[in-house]
Structure formats: structure tokens, C-alpha cells
Design a protein around this nucleic acid. Sequence first.
DNA 1: TCTGGGGTCCTTACCCTG
DNA 2: TCTGCAGGGTAAGGACCC
Length: 410
Amino acid sequence: MSRSQVRRPTGRIGFGVDDADCTILHVDMDAFYASVSLRTRPELHGTPVIVGGGGRSVVLSATYEARALGIHSAMPMSRARRIAPQAVFIEPDHRAYAQVSRGVMALFASITPLVEPLSLDEAFLDVSGALRRLGSPTAIAELIRARVQDEQLITCSVGVATTKFVAKLASTRSKPDGLLVVPADRVIDFLHPLPVGALWGVGEKTEAQLTRLGLRTVGDIANTPLATLTRALGQASGTHLHELSWGRDPRSVNPHEPEKSVSNEETFEHDIDDPAIIHAHLLALADKVAGRLRAAGYVGRTVSLKVRFADFSTITRSRTLPRPTDVGMEVYDTVRALYEALGLQRVRIRLVGVRMEGLVEAHDAPHQLLLGEPEHGRREAEVAVDTLRARYGSDAVRPARLVNPDRREQ
DNA sequence: TCTGGGGTCCTTACCCTG
DNA sequence: TCTGCAGGGTAAGGACCC
């Protein structure tokens, strides 16, 4: 099949024609995971396809044909199977997603150095420095759309505006396979008819609260006194939404946003009440988080434990260390102490998670040996393990207690 | 119906310090 | 010495995003 056969008709929408100041682009892949999965299953184009895992997982992505049947991302897979038994269900292929994402981000980088990735499948671009070389923002957006389709065999949608927030909304409103330009003098016309839920930061709870105030559109928010909004939503959220409702968003495209936290969590296939098995999972998670910190060159100061019980209630507990660390055993010791402090007696647990916060770059962190601490020890051992894993795979070396998952702690 | 995983940001409460 | 207060750090939880 030739590449051109994949191309859909361009869903280009113009909210105006004067794009001179619209140098912020938001590029978002359409149904990313599903589209990537379909590259190797072209016979499924035009059919309902749902990407997700088994067990207690949720829908990661669905084609627009599946969405027409009522499927949406984050829906439990068990429910999706019930609603759309005729759909094709595909296991996620994270390696393929990462590979396509790298290709797309490299394409963005060839357009402008000012690229701020938001996730695997979307990014903001500031193209103000590329106008002389590549033409108007709209021309650049069309170029990106054509190249993504030709090089990656998937479609994307692009919002073009003067601010990040409006560009993001524009790409959403142009989906799938579309382009929407919102010039500065049309921002209010574009924003005010939209439902409040379209605003970034308005989810289910906030929308319900706004509805109680009788506010249904962005225009309603714009015409509500700031004091009313801050009373209902708090100082930060109220002010934020009021600013957005008038199209004011001063944030620039920032390509080097530092990481603030690193976490890993795991939902069990079945709820667990055996402390020894919980400990083993905490060890594996601590090991994983610390490995990611070392790979990224960070150390973290605050260790956080998350526990979700069988009834879905969730608690977190955290402790700030005297000095930052990227050593898995230090993370585990802390997280286990936090777990023990809960004093749980064979309570059924659905999920455990480990998070490191208060990140600083490792070379900026002061390294001071504690009294009695050997100069070489756990960290050196874990760095050696990193080297082995890089060469032989992530499962090549594991903490002894994790080699046999059925083994109980003594 | 039955709810993943990896993040960010905000609010509130509490403690400590000056 | 005691009290009130402001400000910073920490902890916990909630809402939201993709």
C-alpha cells in the first residue's frame, strides 16, 4: 500500500485568515496508540479498534469508529468489551509508541528548537524563528501535518494561535486530521461559546461546581466577577480560569522544563493482603524509581508511598530525607517504614506506588557521608547493576528477594 | 460499571522559628 | 516569659491532564 493511500482528506478549518502573530502551534496526534497499532494492521482502518491491556486495565486509545460506539479512553476495558464486543481489541505496544514519538519530536526539532513536549503524542512549538525560512504559521502547520503523515503514517491535528492555551483548544476542536487557526482578534469569538469543560483545568468536579453557579460557557465565566470565582474555586483556580476565559495566557514555550517527581505504581491483578508480597512489590517499585532517577541524573529528597485499598480509597504518606538520594535500597527502607507505620493488619490492597519528589540534579546535590557510612556501598552496587541491565536487559539483574516472586520474606 | 499509570499543581493543616 | 503573628517547610489529599 502506498503511503498516499493512508492520507485522509484534509480537515482544514479556518477561524480567520490573519495568522501573522499566531506563532504558537499545538500539535496533537489523532488517537495516537490506536493509529500506531494500525500501521501494522492496515486492514483494520475504518473499523472500531480499542487499545488496552487485560485484567483491571482501562482503554488507552480507540479509533474514531470505536468512539462512535461510546468508547473513550480511561474507560475500564471490561466495560469496553461489554459495550463494543464487535470491536478489535489490541494489546498496547509501548516500544512502537516510543519509536514513533521520537520520530515526530525529531521532526518538530527540525522546524524549531523551541519545542515543549507534553506527552508522547503532543507538543507546543514556537515557530516565530522559522517564519522567514518556512513561511507563515499556517504553512508550517500544513508542512508538519504532511510530514507526520508521510514519515509516520499517522495523522495529527494542529492548533495555531497567539497563546499556548488557545492553540491547545484549537487543535482539540479541529480533530481529527484538522487544522484550526485562531487569530488574536478572533480569540474571544472562538472562546466564549465553548462549554466550561473545554477550559484547561476544568474537570468533572469543577464543571459541576460551575454549573451550580449557573455558568455553562466560557463567556459566562468571563462575565462573572473574579471575587465570585475565587470564593467558589479558591484563589489560584478562580484567577486562572478568569484569565483563560479572556484568552490571557502568558506562558511561553519552554523546551527545558525540569522534572519535579518520578513515580511508579502497580495495580494488582487481585487484591493482596499478604505483607510479605506487598514488601516485595515495594522493593521492586523503589528499585525502578531509583533506577530512573539515576538514568535521568536526578536525586530526590522526599519519598512518598501510595496505597489504594480494595474499596478504592487511597492514602499517601511521605517522608523527607536528611539528604537527597537515588539509591534504591534507601528509597525502599523509607517506603517500607512508611508502610509499617500504617499498622495495617491483613487489609486487602489494590495498588501500591512509590514516588520521589524534591528532585535536584545529581551533580548539584551536596554529597555528604553520614556518620559511619562506608564511602563505597549501595549506590556503587546499583550503578553496576544499571550497566548490566543496559547491556543484558532490564530483567538481567534483580534484587534477590524478587528473583522468585512466590518467595515469602523471612 | 468499576475505575491504569505517570505526572503537575493547589489547598489545607500543622509545626517550627523569629 | 508569654502571646500573637507571619512565613517557611512539610505532610496529606484532591483535582486535573494525557
